[in-house]
Computed example of a mutant assay.
Amino acid sequence: MNSRYHEDDGQQPMHGFPRVAYKIAHDADRTGTIYRRFDRLASRNLLLLEAEIAELEGRQAEYDYEDRDRPNHPRVQESRSDWKTFEELANGAKQPNEVERMELAMTIRGKLREYHEALAAHQFLLNLERPAETTVKGMRDWFEARNTRFGRPQLWGRSEDRFRDVDDLVALRVPANQDRLSLFVLNNFGVFFKTRSSDGHTAEISERSVANAVALLSSLLSAAVLFGSMVSMCFVRNVYAVLGMVGGWTVLFAGCIGFLTNAKRDQIFAATAAYAAVLVVFVSGTFGGVPGAGGTATNCNCTQTS
């Protein structure tokens, strides 16, 4: 039997866990690292731990009532205020009651640690980003493909349904740009960014290509909103119409920032204020800030005359 480790020879691993692991590990963008959170089981486990600790809490309260209402050995009373005495009485087995109380204290310590670690882990998973819909669809189509030699999904048994509940999935890595514009390009024009995957049989969408396309589109859109507003106002002579156009272009800019990006509210306010300030400076420089006779401005020249 040859037990030597073979490097990747370019061939696909066998069906099952080896092939699924190979698919996830050789994803170029690492966005295929999608796993189940098991929300229902995690919630139930937290509830069971909570109930178990609640019982321990009740037992601790009973011990406290017993120690308060009955006379004890003087050192036992001392052990309620001094850990060293408590440890000596419990470890020496001189006081059976102290042994029980020490065992309870150690049990509570371990269960609380387990409970808090489970809470922190579940909170961390809940705060992770959801996988992109296109990534889930691509992985599901590959996972559930029926053209394998067995005519079944890549994994069998209960694992056949691992992609069925999208809300129970978590991605260890999601594309860096998950704004609405990126998702729009990904969902509607993803076919233009497909590349051959590592298995040589399926196609993947290149995250880098999508990011570059979205960056170019964002630059063109921002330039169009800025210079388009300036050019359009050069053809309007009525100062009130110009003010209305300033407001309209500002609203359009704020809408683009709010709906096409993941900018926060303070960032939207700052960007909109800066954009409005640019338009105000342009209008004041072009029209001199003074309307002409009859509420109209003088001839529109994009250079200020002396």
Rank of each mutant, 00 (worst) to 15 (best):
Q178T: 09
A145H: 08
D141Y: 11
G151P: 07
R180C: 08
D168V: 13
F193E: 01
F163S: 00
Q154G: 11
G200R: 11
E160Q: 11
L186S: 06
F163E: 03
F192M: 06
D161W: 15
R152H: 13
R173Y: 06
W142G: 02
R173D: 00
Q154D: 13
V166W: 15
L183S: 05
M139D: 09
A171C: 12
R173P: 01
R164L: 12
P175H: 03
D199I: 04
M139A: 14
D141H: 15
S197R: 11
N188A: 07
G200D: 10
Q154L: 14
G157Q: 01
E144H: 13
E160V: 10
D168K: 07
N147M: 15
D167Y: 14
V174F: 07
L186M: 10
D199S: 02
G151Y: 09
F150K: 14
D179L: 04
R152F: 15
Q178D: 03
D199V: 05
N188C: 09
V170A: 01
F193T: 01
R196C: 10
V185W: 01
L183R: 07
T195K: 11
R149F: 10
R164T: 13
L155K: 05
F150V: 14
V170D: 01
R162C: 03
G138A: 14
L183Y: 04
R158Q: 09
V166D: 15
W156G: 11
D199P: 04
W142N: 05
N177P: 04
L181G: 01
A171F: 08
M139L: 12
Q154E: 14
F163I: 02
N177C: 06
M139I: 13
G138S: 15
D168R: 06
N177F: 04
F192H: 06
R180Q: 09
R152Q: 15
R196M: 11
L183K: 03
R140N: 07
A176E: 06
S159I: 05
G200Q: 09
V174D: 01
S159H: 06
E144S: 11
G190I: 00
L155A: 05
D165S: 12
S182E: 08
E144V: 12
N187F: 06
Q178H: 06
R162L: 03
R152L: 14
L169W: 02
S197M: 11
R164C: 13
F189Q: 10
R162H: 04
F150S: 13
F163Q: 00
D179P: 05
W156S: 11
G190T: 00
V185N: 00
D165G: 12
V185Y: 00
